[in-house]
Design a protein around this nucleic acid. Structure first.
Lengths: 334, 334
DNA sequence: CAAGATGCGACAATAATCGTCGCATTTAAC
DNA sequence: GTTAAATGCGACGATTATTGTCGCATCTTG
């Protein structure tokens, strides 16, 4: 009964976004596969009438004739995005812009634009929009992220997912560009740099390739050479990214902190077992935390505002660091 | 011609997600407003047949009769989410889980589930899924974020967008819970804490309310008391969150760095004009950066790995800090 | 230039959609 | 308890849209 309508919605779902395209015949096969017993002619008619209502096009008399969604097509969602969700998207965007490589965000642009539309429709009568209503602060120093070719990003993602090999033209640091065949094992984002973790040709050893140093990349049809023994998390924890994390080693941290930091840390806790004790003049914080490099960066960042009391060896470590630093800064005649 | 199909899609768009619902009459008004000249009876028929194809329901003979999308309805997107986009969502989720309050993420859950579906359909024949293929590392110390009541979050967002007042039961620090009427001016996320910035009752002074300390919140029908002079960014830059940023004050930073950090910073630059110079034994970095608190935290975090050469006053500032710290750590007999 | 694929106009048969009416049920007000 | 208004739904005939088929024009490929 409602078959025609449902078929058209399915038709719209099968259409890819530009620059990909699908021929009427291929589309017809897919629909037939879904159980829609329909003539090709009807499909043509459907597409023509749908193109008047939606942002779909065909590319006339090109080599590979086909239909597709226009690149700038506005997203249609069922059910429609709710205002609160749209505001969440807004926040996420603010957030990601600060911390993630923008190339990763390009893919989500359609969603951000759509959330903007939802918010605009909601508040179109309000002069002050939602733009000035949300802000984001963070302890992190903003760093610029290198540009990644969108094609490289897309091909890499696809090859990774489909477990195919990648043919790449890569620019190593301080060397001439080279051609590689890479077996993609994983992707690691380190602050604002995206690394592809993989092996070359038929070799077993694992290497890292920064995505922004790819001049070009292309997913091949050949399957990648898998290594059963490889595991991305193990690889990272083995220290290949200098972010040493010993998942099992915890330490009992005890800090002397000031009032402001006590307030902050009582809201965002270091651990579930965190306790804060106040004496007449001092405030102490105790918590069980992982013994990581991140912890050291974080503790060090507070400068004078905190003092490490326990564990003893961490205190000594910091004491020596400060001693060396003071000497460095004193010795120089700069 | 294709009117019926398009009307049904629009009908689906007008349906809210549970627990909200819309009556057939109201829906009919909306469709009429969009130019669909159709009988109510037809709308009823449409809804009945659509409910066989999509996750929509009506709630029988309740007080407020109405149709709605089921809470667990799978998202339908036109055009369909592409695999690369789905992988981006995967990364974003990984990322946000580390840095954003989870409450903010609840709203986006439908999108994450949908991206998982897309990835699963793509790789269902591959044993090793995409789970182990993406990882994320960061300098930041993971902190726990306080739980926020989803209802509080939703009501606050909505009131903020619609510029309505909020009736709240709030738990101030170290005090008994109180009832407030809040005029919502903006939302600020500070690391993992979400603050509502607003004024109380008919007063003008701006206050901050941590969302996780709301016991309950409810959007009122009354319009908020707006203050034309208020601007969220100005408010933040006035130092109300202790993240002082002087947008206009730049400094010429000169650092002595080691090889590892030189590598990192040559990829993620501090500024566009950043230069790295190497002598036989030393590496220097120069860049024009904003004179912020974040910069100090960041520089401090590196500990022994960097040395501030210029500007002179920043160097002195750090020298004194290290001196004090060394003395603190030496004096104590802990 | 021929073979095959594709797009599309036309047309009649078919299938659905639609508006209307009547009746049953529910809700809210008095 | 009763009434008025609102809602849901089955039935039916008129209307409208959809569909398969055929033929012709166009384009691509070898």
């Amino acid at each position: 009964m409602n078959d025609a309508c449902f078929r058209r919605i399915q038709t719209l779902r099968f259409l890819p976004t530009a620059p990909a395209r699908i021929s009427v015949s291929h589309l017809h096969d897919k629909l037939t596969g879904q159980g829609f017993d329909i003539d090709k002619r009807s499909l043509q008619r459907d597409l023509n009438s749908l193109s008047k209502l939606f942002a779909i096009e065909n590319d006339g008399n090109k080599d590979i004739p086909g239909w597709y969604w226009r690149k700038d097509a506005e997203k249609l969602e069922l059910p429609e995005m709710e205002p609160a969700v749209a505001l969440s998207f807004r926040m996420v965007k603010l957030f990601l812009e600060k911390f993630m490589p923008p190339s990763t965000l390009g893919d989500l642009d359609g969603y951000f634009r759509h959330s903007d539309n939802v918010l605009n429709n909601l508040t179109h009568n309000h002069l002050s929009g939602w733009n000035d209503k949300v802000a984001l602060l963070s302890r992190s120093q903003p760093l610029l992220s290198p540009a990644i070719d969108p094609v490289v990003l897309a091909e890499t993602y696809q090859a990774l997912l489909l477990e195919k090999q990648i043919k790449a033209h890569y620019q190593p640091r301080n060397e001439e560009p080279r051609d590689y065949i890479i077996n993609p094992h994983g992707i690691v984002i380190v602050d604002k740099i995206i690394y592809l973790v993989g092996s070359l040709w038929e070799y077993q050893d694992i290497k890292q390739f920064a995505l922004h140093r790819f001049i070009s990349a292309e997913q091949l049809e050949s399957d990648m050479l898998k290594q059963d023994s490889f595991n991305l998390n193990n690889y990272i924890h083995a220290g290949h990214f200098e972010y040493l994390v010993d998942q099992n080693q915890f330490i009992e941290l005890k800090l002397k902190i000031n009032k402001i930091i006590a307030t902050h840390l009582s809201e965002s806790k270091l651990s579930k077992d965190q306790t804060i004790t106040r004496t007449e003049t001092e405030i102490f914080l105790e918590a069980t935390v992982k013994n990581t490099q991140q912890l050291r960066w974080w503790l060090m960042g507070f400068g004078k505002s905190i003092e490490i009391v326990e564990p003893e060896n961490l205190r000594k470590e910091f004491k020596n660091t400060f001693k060396e630093l003071y000497e460095t800064y004193s010795a120089d005649s700069v």
